[in-house]
Computed example of a mutant assay.
Amino acid sequence: MRIVDIRHGFGTYVGNLSLEPLIDGIAFRAAVHHHQGAASLHELMEVREALEAGLIGTVAASLPTEDLAELKRLVDTMEQEARQHDAIRPETDRAFHLSLYRALGNHLLSEVLDAFWAALHQVRAELGDVHTDPRTTWAQHRALVEALEAKDGARAVETMHRHFDDLRARLAMD
């Protein structure tokens, strides 16, 4: 579980207590089941969607100004990446989703959400899955920020579901 860090000649220390073993386990399970013909990528995406869509309405009601400003900055970065490189860097997308739920103040929740984000992206990369059109991805993130700025929880929930539509459609084609 990587909780204990043994350093030969120095001693035994408590590790950083990361969820990396969970990420690796989820990704490994999803990849194996995918190769066996199971809908494991779809299931992994559904878990992530349920978590994010279930929380976004709460975020919309109480998003601090500084977090909204950070989300806008990240959306601007996504736009630049989409236009200049025809791709959105995974680090930018990950930062967006981490920033989205920071205001809830629940570190475990943030780590679990990030674990599912990382596992899904790890499996997609291992399977050679490429990202959807970066301009579409950028527009979906921008629409989510606009819903949050309007404090429209229902629109934010709907926008979050639409954010997963392209991935859901592509997984259905596999």
Rank of each mutant, 00 (worst) to 15 (best):
Y13Q: 14
Y13R: 15
Y13C: 13
G15Y: 14
S18D: 04
E20D: 15
P21D: 00
L22F: 07
L22H: 02
I23P: 07
D24S: 06
G25S: 00
G25K: 00
R29D: 10
A31W: 12
H35S: 13
Q36I: 03
Q36G: 06
A38G: 09
A39F: 12
S40C: 03
L41H: 07
H42C: 11
E43S: 06
E43L: 10
M45G: 07
V47S: 14
V47M: 12
A50I: 05
L51I: 10
E52G: 08
A53G: 00
I56H: 09
G57N: 04
G57H: 09
G57P: 11
T58I: 10
V59N: 07
A60E: 03
A61E: 14
L63C: 01
L68S: 01
A69I: 07
E70K: 06
L71R: 00
L71G: 01
D76P: 11
D76G: 14
T77C: 09
M78I: 02
E79L: 03
Q80N: 04
Q84S: 13
H85C: 04
P90H: 13
P90E: 13
E91Q: 04
T92I: 02
D93G: 12
A95V: 08
F96V: 04
L98V: 15
L100T: 08
R102F: 04
A103R: 10
H107N: 00
L108P: 07
L109W: 03
V112R: 00
A115W: 09
F116S: 08
A118P: 00
A119N: 10
H121K: 02
H121A: 00
A125T: 11
E126I: 09
E126W: 07
L127W: 00
L127H: 07
G128L: 04
